[in-house]
Design a binder for these strands. Structure first.
Length: 172
DNA sequence: GTAAGGATTGGC
DNA sequence: CCAATCCTTACT
């Protein structure tokens, strides 16, 4: 079942752990479903690791919209990063999707799914080509500091806002 | 207008 | 370790 906008309109630190174990659905020629295994949360203009730290700009304006929309941007001139906007309007937050089952790395997953700038602002609650569905009931996950944002300084670079799925040992 | 560097990846 | 590659932001 597709997640509604209400799911994404909560605070990013509530939504991010709930994203682990959900299913990212991409429909183009055929339909593909991918288990979300790793995400990172970026929260507010005060978060010095967030693109919203300079206030509203052309690139990050979608982060200031309500939750449930897609934020896509180009990094290092070659990789598209897929993010989901969360929270209420004018409260810039986003979740970077860093990994899917079988696809590790935020740049690799957008390439594999064919996601580019045309997805900027796409509405996950109504889009016919990308959305997120309920998945695992209660997946286990661990939290670690976010990757590649050392420039943000403390306390931001140490916030445990990276969420990674871990598989519970099978019970036999 | 100009310059610096990035929420990455893969190859040496 | 470091280049690829181009867009965004900061600064003159």
């Amino acid at each position: 079942m597709r997640l509604t906008r209400e799911f994404f309109e909560r605070d990013v630190l509530q939504v991010a752990p709930d994203m682990v174990g959900k299913i990212l659905v991409r429909k183009s020629i055929g339909i593909h479903r991918h288990l979300i295994t790793e995400v990172e949360a970026y929260s507010g203009i005060e978060d010095q690791a967030s693109h919203a730290r300079f206030g509203r700009t052309t690139r990050n304006s979608i982060m200031f919209a309500r939750g449930g929309l897609v934020y896509v941007y180009l990094i290092y001139g070659m990789y598209w990063m897929l993010n989901v906007v969360t929270g209420p309007e004018n409260h810039p937050q986003a979740i970077l999707i860093r990994g899917l089952q079988g696809i590790n790395g935020p740049g690799k997953l957008t390439k594999a799914l064919g996601i580019d700038r045309t997805f900027y602002g796409e509405d996950l609650s109504t889009s016919g080509r990308i959305w997120i569905e309920n998945g695992l009931e209660k997946p286990d996950f661990i939290q670690t500091p976010r990757f590649g944002i050392a420039y943000a300084g403390e306390p931001w670079k140490s916030k445990p806002w990276r969420y990674i799925r871990v598989q519970r040992p099978e019970i036999s």
